[in-house]
C-alpha cells in the first residue's frame, strides 16, 4: 500500500510542476506587453513602466523568473490583483467557500437522485421505468446548462416568483462570515428568515450545477448495477431466498458503488467548469464568476493564480480518489 501511495505521489509532483509552468507561462504568452495591457487605455509613464518591470521581475532571466514564481507559489504568494490590489491567495480563499458550498449541494443533489434512479433503472431493465429514467438521464447529459439555468429562471423566478434570481442571500440580512458557508452562517446568526433566504437562493444554482453529474451518476450506477447483478453471488443470495430489496440494496449496490465513487470523485473538474457558467448566470460570488470577471477585466494575476489553484484542487482530489480506490480495491495496488 505504501509503495502504491509513493508511486502515485511520484506522478503528482511532475504534473504539479507542469501545471505551475503553464500558469507561469500564461502571462508571458499574452500577445503584446502585459504591462502595457495592464495599464489599459490610460497608458503609463516611463518611470512607472520600469517600476512595474522590476516589480514583476521581467528584467531577470526567464529561468530565474520561474524559480521565483515557484518558490512564491509554495509560500502561498500568487501575486496581487491589478484591480483590488489584494493578494490573489486571500481573494481565492475568501470566495472559495461560496463555490464549495454550491458544489457540495450540487453533488448531494446529484447523488441523492442519481443513485436511486440508476438502481431503479437497473432492476427494471428494459421496462418502462428504465427507458424513462435513462432517456431523462441522456437529456440531462446533453443539456446546455446555461440554457437550463435561463429556463428555470423563467419558470420559477419569473412566472411563479418562488426563487430569487441572483446572489447568496437577501440584502436584508447582514451577519459576519464565520465559516464562509452561507447556510451555516445564517443559522449561527440566529436571524429569523435568514436561513430560509439562503436556502431559496441555493435551490436553482444547485439544480443547474447538479444536472450533468446527476445524469452521469445515474447512467454509471445503472451499468455498474447490471454488471454486479449478473454475478454468481447474487444468484446465491437469490437462491437463499433473500428479499429482492435486500439483494439489490445491500449485496449488489455495495459492490456497484466502487465505480460510482470514482465517477463522483472525477466529477470535481466538471463541477468547477460548470461553476463558471452557473455562477456567472446567478451572480453567485464564487471562484467561477471571479475567474470570468477577471478575464474580462484583464486582471491577469488573478486569472493566473485562479487557474493554478483550480488545477491543484482537481489534482489533489484525483490523488485522493486514487488512494481511496487503492484502499477499497486491492487489485489496483499490485499493478
Amino acid at each position: 500500500m505504501f509503495g502504491y501511495f509513493i508511486s502515485r505521489l511520484g506522478m503528482f509532483i511532475p504534473t504539479f510542476l507542469g501545471v505551475t509552468l503553464i500558469s507561469f507561462m500564461f502571462i508571458r504568452v499574452l500577445p503584446g506587453d502585459p504591462i502595457i495591457v495592464m495599464a489599459g487605455e490610460r497608458g503609463m509613464t516611463e518611470e512607472r513602466y520600469q517600476e512595474m518591470v522590476k516589480k514583476l521581475g521581467f528584467d531577470k532571466p526567464v529561468l530565474q523568473q520561474y524559480w521565483d514564481y515557484l518558490t512564491g507559489v509554495m509560500q502561498g504568494d500568487l501575486g496581487e490583483s491589478f484591480v483590488t490590489k489584494k493578494p490573489v491567495w486571500d481573494e481565492f480563499f475568501a470566495l472559495f467557500p461560496a463555490t464549495l458550498e454550491l458544489s457540495i449541494c450540487a453533488m448531494i443533489f446529484a447523488v441523492a437522485l442519481g443513485l436511486p434512479a440508476g438502481v431503479i433503472a437497473a432492476v427494471n431493465r428494459g421496462k418502462f421505468f428504465d427507458r424513462a429514467l435513462m432517456s431523462s438521464a441522456l437529456i440531462g447529459y446533453s443539456m446546455p446548462i446555461f440554457w437550463w439555468a435561463l429556463l428555470l429562471i423563467i419558470v420559477f423566478s419569473g412566472n411563479l416568483g418562488w426563487t430569487p434570481v441572483s446572489g447568496r442571500i437577501d440584502l436584508l440580512y447582514y451577519f459576519p462570515s464565520v465559516t464562509g458557508f452561507m447556510l451555516i452562517d445564517s443559522l449561527l446568526s440566529g436571524q429569523a428568515g435568514a436561513f430560509q433566504s439562503a436556502v431559496r437562493h441555493l435551490i436553482l444554482p444547485t439544480i443547474v450545477l447538479g444536472t450533468i453529474p446527476l445524469a452521469v451518476i445515474a447512467r454509471q450506477t445503472r451499468s455498474a448495477m447490471l454488471e454486479v447483478l449478473g454475478e454468481d453471488y447474487i444468484r446465491t443470495a437469490r437462491a437463499k431466498g433473500l428479499s429482492p430489496t435486500r439483494i439489490n440494496g445491500l449485496h449488489a449496490l455495495r459492490n456497484a458503488l466502487i465505480p460510482v465513487i470514482t465517477v463522483i470523485g472525477l466529477s470535481v473538474g466538471t463541477l468547477l467548469a460548470g461553476a463558471i457558467l452557473t455562477e456567472t448566470i446567478f451572480s453567485w460570488p464564487g471562484i467561477g464568476k471571479w475567474m470570468v470577471d477577471s478575464i474580462f477585466r484583464r486582471d491577469y494575476p488573478v486569472v493566473q493564480g485562479g487557474l493554478l489553484m483550480i488545477a491543484v484542487i482537481v489534482m489533489l482530489v484525483n490523488l485522493l480518489v486514487d488512494v481511496l480506490y487503492g484502499i477499497i480495491n486491492p487489485k489496483i495496488r499490485r499493478r
Binding site: 501545471v19 499574452l30 500577445p31
Partner: peptide, 21 residues
C-alpha cells in the same frame, strides 16, 4: 505527463483562458 497536465485543468476553464490569450 504532458497530457496529465492538460487534463488537470477543467476543460471549459482552460478553453476560456486560451481564448482570453
Amino acid at each position: 505527463r504532458v497530457m496529465d497536465i492538460i487534463l488537470a485543468f477543467p476543460s471549459l476553464l482552460l478553453a476560456l483562458v486560451l481564448v482570453a490569450i
